[in-house]
């Protein structure tokens, strides 16, 4: 069982932290993990993405041909990465920012009103954490403790 999750969005949305938190949790669960951030010259305001691969087996490439899960925090990320998602893969959209829907019909879609959910728990800045959590809620790799 191998799961590759691609987190993508604007720099500043906490995209890299989402991936890091997932990686950390998975490591503590005893899984093999690779976390690969795509880094740019700009520190803020540019695009950011990272690929987290989780597996019970040893992981070969930290670079994924096709992610099983795409976590898109903004529209450009959806546009860019939607075509790369595997068939029957999962796309988790930040519906607070993305009004459009994926054009593909061979994927599962989860629309998360990230900002509104975060506001409910008291901090808009926690949006990435809520969103990251939703992305794994349907996954088979990590589960919340009962």
């Amino acid at each position: 069982m191998i799961t590759r999750t691609l987190f993508a969005g604007f720099g500043g949305q906490g995209v890299l932290l989402m991936g890091y938190v997932l990686s950390h949790g998975a490591m503590h669960k005893g899984l093999n993990v690779t976390y690969f951030p795509a880094y740019g010259a700009e520190m803020r305001g540019g695009t950011a993405n990272c690929t987290v691969t989780l597996s019970e087996e040893k992981i070969a490439s930290p670079v994924a041909s096709n992610p099983d899960i795409l976590v898109a925090m903004n529209f450009p990320s959806l546009l860019k990465f939607e075509p790369t998602v595997v068939k029957q893969g999962l796309v988790v959209l930040n519906s607070s920012l993305i009004e459009e829907s994926p054009s593909r019909t061979d994927i599962d879609l989860l629309q998360v009103p990230t900002v509104e959910l975060a506001r409910e728990v008291g901090s808009e800045r926690a949006g990435n954490m809520g969103h990251g959590g939703s992305s794994q809620g349907q996954g088979k790799v990590l589960r919340t403790q009962p």
């Binding site: 890091y20 093999n32 993990v33 976390y35 690969f36 951030p37 930290p62 670079v63």
Partner: peptide, 9 residues
């Protein structure tokens, strides 16, 4: 650059 940036246990 990838070896420098990648995180693994």
């Amino acid at each position: 650059g990838l070896m420098g940036q990648v995180m693994e246990p």
